[in-house]
Design a protein around this nucleic acid. Structure first.
Length: 673
DNA sequence: GCCGAGCCTTTTTTT
DNA sequence: AAGGCTCGGC
């Protein structure tokens, strides 16, 4: 280990975690307790001790965490040995395994990954086919039931009697036919390989003698099974997590993995990291008082050496607009009076919709802000279209992607032709591509449609060859393809406003740049490699979004996305009943998770924390009365001061603030509102 | 087959 | 308020 990162920087618990390299280890790392520092130091120590770096496998849940870990480890480990440690997400690990062994499971070698949205459209299609008429069936709900069924290994029941089970059965068999795997399948089939194919299991276990798992509270049942299959005696597994920050239960994360770790790996060495290096005592005291209301947690109490200068503030405002005004004006004041950079501030909200009022205020005051991770880059229509083209070029039998682009841009292949082709493909048990290319099918079509279909198959055939040739510059090819199909012109016509088209162009350009970047980095992986990366790796997405929007400014972000981040000054607006805890969480039995979510929000703050709620809020275009969140009653008031913004705080307006308030009013008048 | 008007719904989001 | 989806007219 390099001297600068030596043991001296670690506290006793952290050091314990670093030194304890053999057998099962559970590190309960509260928010801001130096988790990443500890596990990277641990890996560095292991390599120092002489453990071969490539026998260490470090799995995380997100690419972000994985990349961060990689950077830090490479910095820390001598002689560049850090690079040899195998690091990646659960999914990426399984993809690698499956690329090698998928044929053992009856998949063809060029199987494809279906993203969430591709999965959605397949399920919608199946539901539409199976449900007679408008019975109120929610495909999204079925989708999540299927996902949790896969993750828990439970059955949805008898397909004869349960619609959900029937949809799932059809979905599974169609996915097989499509030679496609969804994100759950990646893990499920990875587990299958590890559990049922001894040769694979032995090989993998032999290679990875030491396994580390970060963000362990986010793992689900399947991932736990994967770990069980992956780690044999003497169980050199070290997991790091915080049950209090488990906020992805709705996505299948199983908190019992961390609560009952002992059940999976015997007699673990348990270490608690409780010294917090991020926040002041008032903030931690308040956050602790909230989270201790959760039953069945591993008890911990975060503490800090920093008494701080400010209490936590609990503020009520008249309505959501006033709440946004308060936040924006306070930040603006702090910026002008104390020269505090905008980047020091973050506003954390429960739902994305809450950011709208805030953005309005920030724009009016001409304050820089960035909205982090609202809609995924790859969920954008234009990006999905291009990805669908690339997927079809890679594998024309991919029906879902083929249907997506069959008439995009519109080329005269309407619904009836598409239905005809799909029905025939079902009858004949082949892909839609096979049907479309078949002269017997084409002869059944009216001349116009026949030509249109011919035009489509010609395009795909023309580009399929270069697409599968190693060494092709995918970015170049894509550009030429887009020009040939007239995609940009199609978008220009489809845009409702000129700005809409401009955004599309920007996104496509940045996507093409990403492809070009891949081309540079990877001259052998070809299209297949790129598609794997696109599905699994969102890292470039963040980068691109930063490029598109201004990098600087106040951070507007959901509480979910804020996990792992920290800011000197944090605002938590909208702490009202129905928002947090979200109204749906009551039915779904997830109120505890909402409490953890608020806890995550509170613990993002380093120095100043303001929690606020309103009397009235605009919702669905209507003004609605709001009640304070029941969580607010749970907060211990020792370090909390309460304010009524309208009655008290507004009077202490400073000159600058007043000026910018007037500017705001003027701007509003100009907009005619 | 194409396109626009009107209707309906409305959490979080990573892989 | 806004985006997605359906239905009906061209």
């Amino acid at each position: 280990m390099k001297a600068a990162f030596g043991m001296g920087m670690l506290n006793p618990q952290q050091r314990d975690a670093v030194m304890h390299t053999e057998g099962p280890v559970l590190i309960l790392a509260g928010a801001g307790t130096g988790k990443t520092r500890t596990i990277t130091a641990r890996m560095a120590h292991m390599v120092d001790k002489g453990i071969q770096p490539d026998t260490i496998l470090a799995v995380t849940f997100t690419n972000k965490a994985s990349n961060e870990m990689r950077e830090r480890v490479i910095e820390m480990v001598a002689d560049g040995k850090g690079k040899k440690i195998v690091m990646g997400t659960f999914h990426a690990f399984c993809v690698k395994l499956l690329r090698e062994h998928a044929e053992k499971l009856g998949y063809k070698k060029n199987w494809t990954i279906y993203t969430q949205s591709e999965q959605t459209s397949l399920i919608k299609r199946i539901v539409a086919r199976m449900v007679t008429k408008d019975e109120s069936v929610d495909p999204a709900k079925i989708q999540s039931r299927i996902s949790s069924a896969k993750n828990s290994g439970e059955s949805l029941g008898d397909p004869q009697h349960s619609l959900e089970a029937a949809v799932m059965e059809a979905y599974q068999s169609e996915m097989r036919a499509l030679n496609a795997m969804d994100f759950d399948d990646l893990i499920l089939l990875g587990v299958d390989l590890m559990e049922n194919h001894e040769d694979v299991r032995f090989r993998v276990r032999d290679k990875h003698r030491y396994v580390m798992v970060d963000e362990f509270q986010d793992t689900n049942g399947l991932q736990m099974r994967l770990l069980n299959a992956l780690v044999g005696e003497p169980f050199n597994i070290c997991v790091v997590g915080d049950d209090d920050q488990s906020i992805y239960g709705w996505r299948g994360a199983d908190i019992t993995n961390i609560l009952e770790f002992e059940k999976f790996f015997p007699d673990p060495h348990v270490i608690k990291l409780e010294e917090n290096y991020r926040s002041t005592t008032p903030i931690l005291h308040t956050a602790n008082s909230l989270i201790k209301n959760n039953a069945g947690r591993r008890p911990k109490t975060l503490w800090s050496r920093n008494p701080g200068n400010d209490n936590v503030r609990l503020v009520i405002t008249e309505d959501d607009k006033e709440e946004a005004e308060m936040i924006a004006s306070e930040i603006d004041t702090a910026h002008f009076q104390n020269a505090q950079p905008y980047e020091d501030f973050a506003v954390l909200f429960r739902t994305n919709e809450q950011s709208r009022v805030l953005e309005q205020q920030f724009r009016q005051r001409k304050m820089p802000y960035r909205v982090v991770g609202s809609r995924s880059f790859f969920d954008r229509r234009e990006i999905k279209d291009i990805c669908a083209y690339l997927n079809v070029l890679h594998n024309p039998h991919d029906d879902m992607n083929l249907l997506r682009i069959l008439n995009t841009p519109t080329r005269g292949i309407g619904n009836s032709t598409a239905e005809l082709a799909r029905d025939e493909s079902v009858d004949r048990g082949c892909s839609i591509w096979v049907v479309l290319s078949d002269p017997r099918f084409q002869r059944k079509l009216p001349e116009k449609s026949r030509n249109a279909v011919q035009g489509f198959t010609d395009i795909i055939l023309k580009y399929a060859a270069p697409a599968s040739t190693p060494g092709t510059f995918v970015a170049e090819m894509t550009k030429v393809l887009l020009a040939e199909i007239g995609y940009m012109a199609f978008l220009e016509k489809a845009a409702k406003k000129p700005e809409e088209y401009a955004t599309w162009v920007t996104c496509i350009d940045s996507f093409l740049a990403q492809i070009a970047d891949y081309d540079e980095r990877n001259r052998t992986g070809g299209l297949a490699g790129f598609l794997d990366e696109v599905c699994l790796n969102d890292e470039r997405e963040d980068k691109k979004e930063d490029d598109i929007m201004q990098k600087k400014g106040v951070c507007l972000i959901t509480m979910h996305a804020s996990k792992g981040l920290e800011f000197p000054v944090v605002y938590l607006p909208g702490c009202e009943q129905g928002i947090i805890p979200h109204k749906r969480s009551y039915d779904e039995g997830r109120v505890d998770e909402e409490r953890r979510l608020l806890y995550v929000g509170l613990t993002r703050a380093m120095k100043k924390l303001t929690v606020s709620y309103v009397r009235w809020r605009m919702k669905y275009g209507e003004k609605q009365a709001q009640l304070p969140s029941p969580f607010l009653k749970e907060l211990d008031r020792t370090h909390v001061e309460e304010h009524d913004y309208g009655k008290h705080m507004k009077e202490t307006v400073t000159a600058e603030e007043g000026a910018s308030f007037i500017t705001g009013l003027r701007a509003m008048l100009k907009q005619g509102k």
